[in-house]
Nucleic acid binder design. Structure first.
Lengths: 262, 262
DNA sequence: CAGTGGTCTAGACCACTGC
DNA sequence: CAGTGGTCTAGACCACTGT
């Protein structure tokens, strides 16, 4: 157990009102912010911190759990605690569903990922009929049943997004939309071929902490929120033809929108 | 210390691989999800949970801290641990900066809050000249200095949003934009009067955990992420005339956007 | 194997709340 | 005042990692 480089972490002010474990978290946070521990770097081990600050192990662990819940560090059993690297971010432009992007053979996700030099993957694709929740039902105009298309998206093997599309069953049944692979241009292209010319999309954006299920599915580190995006597609007759409920790892995405001034 | 109502919380499976504190968190989470503890309700005290599950206090506290980091509960010193009520949500529509909303006397925030029956407030308004960060500078076309307008928005006394607007100094100096109160319609109305007719806005949306500063300014409960929205306003000549960097309590907002299909 | 983080105990004292 | 959560200690044993 090597001694810590002096001066890197400072000391505790025992006269301060601020709890010791918060002070230790503050010192570590400063050190990370100032680049004394870089992305991916290993922090001093718990026992080193115990020795350096002269406190008990639980106090040190308490400090580290603060930094973890802030998304600054993550721990790896048997290895150490590391400064969380900022993963590459995927930028979703507001024209990503424009018709012109749909006339190619590949999906928007695939095209974009390959352009960015990443390896795109879609897995756990499941298509089935369901009774809609009251929320989905309301958005789709109260259909009795819906077709649900679930799938998970990965970049270079890392899960980044989980999405479920809901379509009124009377509209999707016995069409390519009910197939696992709906063909080039995706379900929006098929909807238009079926005579539902798309007019616009409504998107609702929320952020929150993930459920335990979402942590598992998206392999989220602790301290990483999710962005939830609910998109409703309307055809030119004003009918809602699809609702897509997407949950994204917040540290993998930036959403970009363009708004007219009038 | 009353005994817990039997059957409400179940028991620990000591043969399970799952850590005891996680199992306790699971039981409590289920109970909350199933409505056995409603919004605002008090959970059993730590000592009651210690007795019920037959574990040490630190184990119970560990469980509670999981629920706290999930944003499900929050603790109040001397009172107890309570199920977090979902606060009323403010919905930001994508046309909120349309010119037609600017022709009244009041700000968009004020009008909208009053319509929803809330009491709007703006405080800690500060206007000053600054050297821009490299990010802001790049977005605004590399001005040497900028005018920064900082303010915090509150609803019914609760802080919900903190925003900073940056404008190129050559454009804003010695205009009403540099005044604490820029007048009816806000700085966008003033910009148009100065001949910068607005053409469109670009918005970038991110979500992340808050910094300790943001926790303080927005009085965030632990386990609440923030939404960061960076908006750039462009005039009809394509010049970026303002960048607004907004940090919002994620549990107070839903962002709504409308996208054309082509 | 030694070193790391993960879980858990059984205490202690403190600060805040409400009666 | 009793009851609550907040902080902290000094141990213990375990599971995982790398050599």
């Amino acid at each position: 157990m090597a001694a810590l480089p002096s001066g890197v972490l400072g000391v505790i002010d025992s006269t301060s009102d601020r709890a010791v474990f918060r002070q230790i978290a503050d010192r570590l946070r400063e050190a990370i912010d100032k680049g004394r521990f870089k992305e991916g770097a290993k922090l001093p081990s718990e026992s080193e911190l115990v020795e350096h600050f002269g406190v008990s192990r639980m106090t040190v662990r308490n400090s580290l759990s603060i930094l973890q819940s802030e998304g600054l560090v993550s721990s790896e059993h048997g290895k150490g605690v590391f400064v969380r690297p900022r993963p590459p971010v995927r930028r979703l432009a507001s024209d990503r569903f424009a018709r012109r992007h749909r006339e190619q053979g590949k999906s928007a996700f695939t095209v974009e990922a390959e352009a960015a030099g990443s390896r795109p993957e879609v897995d756990s694709l499941k298509v089935r009929e369901e009774r809609p929740t009251s929320d989905i039902s309301a958005r789709l105009g109260q259909p009795r049943k819906v077709l649900a298309r679930r799938r998970r998206y990965l970049l270079d093997g890392r899960p980044v997004e989980f999405a479920v599309s809901y379509l009124p069953l009377d509209l999707a049944r016995d069409t390519p939309i009910a197939e696992p692979n709906p063909g080039p241009g995706g379900i929006y292209a098929r909807l238009e071929e079926l005579g539902h010319r798309l007019d616009h999309f409504d998107e609702e954006v929320r952020a929150r902490m993930p459920s335990p299920d979402e942590v598992k599915t998206l392999r989220l580190a602790s301290g990483v929120p999710v962005i939830q995006l609910v998109r409703t597609a309307y055809d030119t007759e004003g009918r809602a033809v699809e609702v897509c409920d997407t949950v994204m790892s917040a540290d993998a995405y930036v959403l970009a929108y363009q708004l007219p001034a009038n």
